[in-house]
Amino acid sequence: MPLHDDELFLLSYYRTSEINGSLFFGRLARTVRSGPIQHDLSKHFADEAQHAWYWTRCIDRLRSRPIPMASGYQDQYLEAAGLPVNLMEVLAITLVFEQRVINQYSRHLELSGLDPEIADTFDRIMADERWHLKWVRDALVGMESRYGKEHIAATIARNRAADGEVYAKTLAEYEARLSFLFGQRTFGQPTEES
């Protein structure tokens, strides 16, 4: 049986967010100088593109077609947080976003009766997402001497506030579709461990 409209919408939303993430990191990977950050940013870019493919394939295997969407979560998030203009700001925004992604995917994965195809797609993606979080966190620690530990912490806190605002707005906007999938559950702020 093809996916329910609301579930198709959400998986298509994930797909679009992965595509937009890939485009974002691809452009940055083209710009930054050679070194460990360029290396990890390039892998991050490739992973996001691969995740978009996984969602495309998952939707296809569930006998549905992805809904084309121009913008994803990042677009609203970047609008609220403001465009980053240095590498530390890029990574701070990315850290908060990756925590949000892992939190959202984990919650979705906890649903009972989830189609094995969808669960398998989450499992594949989550392994990469955990690495994304690790490399970004490590890179930010490595930037402390250059940008200042407190300044980095303040930047992360500012982005976390923007993310919380956008996430609440997104939940409200898609309340009907999400309540179909999640009942009355709401998701909290992403935690450091998530």
Binding site: R27, V32, N86, V90
Partner: peptide, 11 residues
């Protein structure tokens, strides 16, 4: 975003 890339490249 092209401007952001340019500013990052200058840095």
């Amino acid at each position: 975003f092209r401007l952001v890339e340019m500013v990052i490249q200058l840095q």
